[in-house]
């Protein structure tokens, strides 16, 4: 369980980092917190010849909140988000989701950009990005481009990021005052990757109707997904027990998770329905009557 041999550089300028990635093509890999890449190297599932440590590049660890939304630098660590009073107000859903990331030792190291680039289908940050219509800002030898989260995740552990591009920032649209939200996930143990998870928010009208509903799921496919059928069941309606049931059923019906060693796909699908119901009930402040 020792990593294969590799070279290591730690540039302090973004263009140098991109230069290394561009020159070494697929043989180079950017590293920030190292919480996914290093174990993969130890298991010899990844064997980059060159690690480009981007941890010393200035300007990538900022958290900015303004009228246009929230901008998180690629090097923002989970603990920075957890401890940010500003984000607790500006994006409570993000903060709640991040609290579910692994264990505190890992949250001390892991980064926003690293999680997005790693693209684990059960990871929280990609789920939040997809649910919240995030924009991912990347830079490469051909310049800067912005990729919508919905276009970013290609497959399990695979993104549309080119080998010579780096994520520098993720942008989340502004949060509104009348917003209701919830995050629910189910993992075998605290800190494990979720067997399924749901992030959702909507804007609550004075008459109790939900608009602008966004529901996203993790752990039920190759990538995080928006649950549009479940959203349709809720959009512009008053949330009631029966709407919640409908949304849960729609969520479960809209995914086809594969079987794996942790759970049969059918279980994850049913679990997603339950979590959708629970998340909606929590957001709406309703008590669910739960029998089997």
């Amino acid at each position: 369980m020792k990593a294969p041999r590799f070279e290591y550089v730690r540039p302090t300028r973004l263009e140098d980092a991109i230069g290394f990635l561009a020159r070494h093509g697929g043989d180079a890999k950017a590293i920030a917190g190292g919480q996914s890449l290093v174990p993969m190297m130890a298991f010899r599932l990844a064997a980059p010849r060159l690690l480009v440590d981007i941890g010393r590049i200035p300007g990538l660890n900022g958290i900015a909140v303004d009228d246009d939304g929230i901008r998180l630098g690629a090097l923002v660590r989970w603990r920075d988000i957890e401890r940010s009073a500003e984000l607790q107000r500006a994006h409570p859903l993000l903060v709640e989701a991040v609290r579910h990331v692994a264990h505190y030792q890992i949250r001390n190291r892991g980064t926003v950009g690293g999680s997005l680039a790693h693209a684990d289908p059960a990871a929280e940050m990609p789920g939040i990005a997809v649910t919240c219509d995030a924009q991912i800002v990347v830079v490469g030898p051909r310049g800067r481009r912005i990729i919508a989260a919905a276009e970013f995740f290609a497959a399990a552990l695979s993104t549309t990021l080119a080998a010579d591009e780096l994520i520098i920032e993720v942008q989340l649209p502004p949060w509104r005052d009348n917003r209701r939200w919830a995050f629910e996930e189910f993992a075998r143990r605290r800190g494990d990757f979720a067997l399924a998870g749901v992030a959702l928010f909507y804007d609550g009208g004075a008459d109790g109707t939900a608009t602008n509903i966004h529901i996203g799921a993790i752990g039920v496919g190759d990538t995080p997904v928006r649950l549009t059928a479940a959203e349709s069941a809720v959009e512009a309606k008053r949330i009631t027990a029966s709407i919640i049931r409908d949304a849960g059923a729609a969520a479960a019906a809209s995914v086809k998770p594969a079987d794996d060693i942790h759970a049969p796909g059918e279980y994850r699908r049913a679990l997603l329905g339950v979590l959708t119901e629970r998340a909606l009930a929590r957001a709406a402040g309703l008590a669910l009557r739960e029998d089997a």
């Binding site: 174990p39 075998r188 143990r189 605290r190 800190g191 060693i261 942790h262």
Partner: peptide, 23 residues
């Protein structure tokens, strides 16, 4: 966990789940 070909599928502590302090 073994599959039908007697391959061990979870030879790491990411997939072999031990109880942790909070379970």
């Amino acid at each position: 966990i073994y599959d039908a070909n007697a391959q061990l599928l979870n030879a790491s502590l990411a997939d072999y789940l031990l109880p942790t302090a909070t379970d």
